[in-house]
Design a protein around this nucleic acid. Structure first.
Lengths: 160, 160
DNA sequence: ACTATATAGTTAGATAGCCTAACTACTAGC
DNA sequence: GCTAGTAGTTAGGCTATCTAACTATATAGT
């Protein structure tokens, strides 16, 4: 079946996909753990992360990122607001919209917890040579592309 | 602040961490999508994935991987069993335990959906030269290590 | 061998988070 | 100005998780 020449590569390739799996898995675990540590649900934690990393968003926008309905996003923002983690502010131009902004306190608290992680991951990247960085970046971009395209290319396909 | 020599590297390093973030994010999205496509909840979908990739597990073991209590794992296996996706079988040596095994039908159905993704990701890895594979594998392993160590190194730390 | 403790799994009841449906307020296109 | 679409909210229902309590089996201490 497998040619001898390919075998070395294929084994390593599979090993590599397995390692990627390990990363996504560890990421899910650490997200649960951080959420618990901050007294939040996983989605609430992820929402805070999005707000911190991707700038201010509206409730529905946030819910969309998390794959939930706008009603659930309202409830999510309610929870975060009740805990003092975010504030609802009016959108500068569109009077329908709101902007959900993390409070200073929340930024400190959440960043304080995830900073060591981010720093550690950045450090790994910085230890690489520019060429190596290019290789890894290319790999990650391609993988992202595949994951993102799959949803678009195989739409619904409900069954029969 | 940043030295000119560092700057090129650092920018790319940050870009790289960002790309990694993109992968984990896309992974979460695709998991939601695949779960919905198979008529499962996200955790139920993930459980099926674990069962397929990591061999047969007991309910509590499965629940542990998913970060839930054994009672919830019982309910999860109940759901999967009711849908005909898994079967409870007695553990060969320990009479307390069960082994949750995916049914043939479920293996086909789930693998049928995730196979293109796995193939695509494997293909990306296979396009790399052995040296490049080594670089990426090393990167992913280090990142995994950081994520996994964080939970162990910063245990609980409830507050004050 | 006997007892005590720990582990795997289940049940019952409570809670939290998400859903759908319906609604208000606002924007944008014709 | 009317019409259709979008952002956000409320109300009510449902589902997945939780905690607590329990059974059955395994393991460790004496």
């Amino acid at each position: 079946m497998e040619g001898e020449i390919q075998e070395g590569n294929s084994l390593k390739a599979h090993e590599l996909s397995w390692a990627l799996r390990g990363v996504t898995r560890a990421n899910a675990e650490i997200t649960r753990e951080l959420a618990q540590r901050l007294g939040l649900g996983v989605n609430d934690m992820t929402a805070m992360d999005y707000l911190l990393q991707d700038g201010p968003l509206g409730p529905a926008e946030l819910g969309n990122l998390l794959g939930m309905r706008s009603a659930s996003a309202t409830a999510l923002v309610d929870r975060l607001e009740a805990m003092g983690h975010v504030e609802r502010r009016p959108h500068p131009t569109d009077r329908r919209r709101l902007v959900v902004e993390p409070t200073v306190h929340a930024v400190e608290e959440v960043l304080g917890v995830i900073r060591p992680l981010v720093a550690g991951i950045d450090a790994v990247a910085e230890e690489l040579s520019p060429d190596e960085q290019r290789v890894v970046l290319d790999y990650l971009s391609r993988v992202s592309g595949i994951l993102r395209n799959y949803g678009a290319e195989n739409p619904e396909q409900v069954s029969s």
